[in-house]
Design a protein around this nucleic acid. Structure first.
Lengths: 214, 214
DNA sequence: TGCAATGTTCACGTGGTGTTAACGCTGGGG
DNA sequence: CCCCAGCGTTAACACCACGTGAACATTGCA
């Protein structure tokens, strides 16, 4: 472990026991978590608890070489890497650095629309010209859906499925109302939208870059 | 100073003037801050401002050898180390590394909400405008949980798990009542909360910085 | 044991939120 | 030029989540 410390010495390292892993992850907000529990079952439980916790950390799961089953399960649970002990310190250090630098579809907490609008996913609110604008739950979900697919046309059915849920059977026109409410909050002139645009006969799309600049 | 740079060259170093120390500490989130102000009184003010700022940094306080009084006061204020100039560069570098590698970063004993509220984690009480406000155990735990995840939305289930324990099965609405009691103690107007906010349909979140300022 | 402090649960009112429908407007095609 | 499907707009309505107060239970301490 001294050797490992030397290899990762320029990083901020913390060691915690399994019982504290969720609390530590939430408080410290690390970028990488290495789970090296001697008990594979307890390690798996830690994985599940972490996955439902408020952390974006990438997970590196390490088990004794005999615990092949748990190592595979961990992958299913969504860990980023799953390795078996024994493990060379340099190997582990390398994996940690790999995860650290890996471009991951990071759950960014902020999405931009233009230069004056910012959707804060944590607060589920909108920052417009430096002023916070309240978003209702459905509005936030709707805007998030659009912002994650900038420029793409989304049909009402697609929107209903993603925002309202797959088994939801409601009037597609409900989407229109929410679009209107969103426009009143993000558009300079709601009557002449420049961001959240109608695609007649198909659905709606959100521009993320001013049209004139393209 | 060139010699010191050589001794600490593998670390990321920043130099700032006293007026910028709080801002720099907040933005850079350093692990160690060396306060070497030629003016001992100004150095002490920096210590106090840092101690109530959003940083976990360990503090190393350096004064001219004549300023014995201030050096002792700094210790009372909670600096981690207090040394007198003149000081050999190797000595200083050694102290910095000592603080850096100290087993575990010191648990911050105080968390801030706004500028007038301070949660003392040891006493588990609240300092509001310089007056101690009594917190009941659950209230203290709840506020601590929020203060450690400023701005983040916490669901009732998440709160229950963290404050009441993982195996606790109680009414999620219990959280509402404690939130209400907390509001009566931290909010200027409990009917119109500005710190501990409701996120309808999701949970609650604690703002640590006034929203309009951002 | 008794009392005070703390914690939990419930019921009720209210306001925010979502849904639906009706009606008017617009643009494109016959 | 008119028609109509599609969309904008508004408002009524129902529902549900939350705030609130209080009763009740539990804990801690003298």
């Amino acid at each position: 472990m001294a050797e490992l410390d030397a290899l990762l010495g320029d990083l901020e390292l913390h060691r915690v026991v399994a019982a504290d892993v969720v609390r530590a992850a939430t408080e410290l907000q690390p970028r990488v978590i290495v789970l090296a529990d001697p008990d594979p079952a307890r390690g798996l439980r830690s994985v599940r608890r972490l996955r439902s916790a408020h952390t974006d950390a990438r997970l590196l799961f390490i088990t004794p070489v005999v615990a092949e089953q748990e190592r595979l399960e961990a992958l299913v649970e969504g860990v980023d890497e799953s390795l078996a002990e024994p493990l060379a310190p340099s190997e582990l250090a390398g994996r940690v650095r790999l995860l650290l630098h890996r471009a991951r579809p990071v759950r960014r907490s902020r999405l931009l629309v233009g230069e004056r609008l910012e959707l804060d996913l944590e607060r589920r609110q909108l920052l417009r010209d430096g002023v916070w604008v309240h978003l209702r739950p459905k509005e936030a979900s709707l805007l998030e859906l659009f912002a994650r697919a900038p420029g793409r046309v989304l049909t009402r059915d697609h929107i209903l499925e993603r925002v309202w849920g797959p088994d939801h059977s409601g009037d597609p026109r409900t989407v229109d109302v929410h679009v209107r409410w969103l426009r009143s909050k993000i558009e300079p002139d709601p009557h002449d939208p420049v961001w959240l645009l109608t695609v007649r006969g198909v659905g709606y799309r959100l521009e993320t870059v001013p049209l004139t600049k393209r």
